[in-house]
């Protein structure tokens, strides 16, 4: 539920912030629940006492100004921060009620996939890129792999564009196509949750629209969490939105409520552009 913190910080508009209980919980079951999450990079604290519930099979957006911790928060959900030294986490994160720090990290990352800000296809063919995750998780049979690759590329709305050139290098695709390839790659392991870290920030509006459409298709089978710098994007795609500021979760509510009638002054200031 809500979280309280002792230290207070000054918000850019000059008001002090203190965390208060978040907005009303969604009625559907929580896929991921976070309680009292604190994140430290060496001595520096980056996330303060985060608590929220991510609803299942819905799109949740996380917005906030640069450097406020939303990407860091995203990376705790699939324990990606562990690839960086000197990081430390306190608090509780549960996936379907199971503690993510207790389960095998390899299993966790299969169930919770990630798409990055800048597309990062491997220097391999399109086919091998998508198949990589499946192969790593044990799938060896050639026919099954072909099936998985086709299904994933279809779900990522890329199949028609690449079906005749699966053996070509992934780098022969355009930026938007590469990003969809990365989505296909993440889908190939059949995750329950997909985390997207500003996936469209390097793409033009047409490519962005394609990806946003594809999210609507995916949400029927996956829970989606998207970090975005672009408030309009959050307004377009998300069911729930969370607003981060300076390492704290200020407000978390249905998107319409957040944008039309935020309950916190800081949220309203950010949304109306008084700072950013």
């Amino acid at each position: 539920m809500g979280a309280t913190s002792d230290a207070e910080t000054i918000c850019p508009t000059g008001k002090t912030i203190s965390s208060e209980p978040q907005g009303p919980l969604p009625a559907t079951a929580a896929k991921i629940s976070v309680r009292h999450l604190n994140f430290f990079y060496s001595r520096r604290q980056v996330l303060y006492d985060i608590g929220l519930d991510i609803p299942e099979k819905k799109i949740t957006a996380l917005i906030g100004p640069s450097g406020c911790g939303k990407s860091t928060f995203l990376r705790t959900l699939n324990r990606m921060f562990e690839t960086v030294p000197y990081t430390r986490v306190e608090g509780e994160v549960k996936l379907d009620g199971e503690d993510i720090f207790g389960m095998s990290v390899v299993d966790l990352r299969r169930r919770v996939g990630m798409v990055f800000q800048k597309s990062n296809p491997f220097p391999k063919s399109i086919f091998d890129n998508v198949a990589f995750g499946a192969r790593v998780n044990g799938l060896k049979n050639r026919d099954k792999l072909r099936e998985v690759v086709e299904t994933s590329l279809r779900r990522a709305a890329l199949w028609d564009e690449v079906k005749d050139s699966l053996r070509k290098s992934a780098y022969s695709l355009s930026g938007g196509q590469q990003q969809r390839l990365c989505i296909a790659r993440a889908l190939a392991v059949d995750p329950e949750v997909i985390l997207l870290d500003e996936p469209c920030s390097a793409l033009d509006p047409i490519a962005t629209a394609k990806i946003e459409d594809l999210l609507f298709d995916l949400v029927g089978s996956c829970t989606i969490i998207i970090v975005t710098h672009n408030m309009q994007q959050a307004a377009r795609v998300a069911d729930q939105t969370g607003f981060f500021l300076l390492g704290r979760l200020i407000e978390f509510d249905k998107t319409e409520v957040m944008f039309k009638n935020p309950s916190r002054k800081e949220t309203e200031d950010y949304i109306s552009g008084r700072f950013g």
């Binding site: 990606m80 690839t83 990062n120 491997f122 790593v136």
Partner: peptide, 18 residues
Amino acid sequence: VPRALREGAYALGARDSR
């Protein structure tokens, strides 16, 4: 080798050796 490639592989659940 760019960091992004490694991250992509880890995020798919690959182990260090892979």
